[in-house]
């Protein structure tokens, strides 16, 4: 098991291969369906997105509310394929990669290769385990979207699997 800490350099990302089991620590941003639509509206209007995209990792997730005395609610991955339409453009703008669950499209696979990025699979249905590994959670944008807003999470040792790598490797096609 390889322990990784964000940010990852492009060289580090290129070393990761589909099927590798890793842990990931550092800063990630949650965004799912509605948040992506808003980020695209901002980009189309030449406005800055709610977080710098360069080297960033998006976690496709919508957390449960934070219970009293805790740092996070449950926060497992959501189905990444719904974000197939968004990922290539964000990768072209410097996104380091994504964390989610399930296979993403051919177009996403090509963008990962072109920009040296990586897609990690978190284990779907393990929301409590991931929530317990979040050290802090802060709403960054779109409070009206509730769980669908953008949250900055400081994560510690998220157990992940490299699902689609920067060389065309794909755990779902093995």
């Amino acid at each position: 098991m390889l322990d990784l800490t964000l940010p990852l350099t492009k060289e580090q990302r290129l070393l990761l291969l589909a099927g590798d089991c890793v842990t990931l620590s550092g800063t990630v941003y949650t965004a799912r369906d509605c948040a992506h639509r808003r980020i695209f509206e901002a980009l189309d209007a030449d406005m800055v997105p709610p977080f710098p995209l360069e080297g960033a990792f998006i976690y496709y997730a919508g957390p449960c509310p934070v219970p009293k005395g805790k740092t996070s609610g449950s926060v497992g991955p959501t189905t990444s394929a719904r974000m197939n339409v968004f990922a290539p453009r964000l990768l072209s703008l410097g996104l380091g990669g994504m964390i989610g669950k399930g296979e993403m499209s051919e177009e996403v696979a090509r963008a990962l290769q072109r920009f040296g990025a990586v897609y990690f699979a978190a284990i779907g249905g393990a929301g409590a385990l991931y929530g317990n590994a979040v050290r802090s959670s802060e709403l960054v944008a779109y409070p009206d979207l509730l769980a669908e807003g953008v949250y900055r999470l400081e994560i510690e040792k998220f157990p992940l699997v490299v699902a689609m790598d920067a060389h065309g490797g794909n755990i779902y096609r093995k």
Binding site: P67, S74, G127
Partner: peptide, 17 residues
């Protein structure tokens, strides 16, 4: 392991409730 953590930490098993 997730279910054990859910019960110990009183967190929902999955965030998609």
């Amino acid at each position: 392991e997730n279910e054990k953590i859910a019960q110990r930490e009183e967190l929902p098993v999955c965030q998609d409730t």
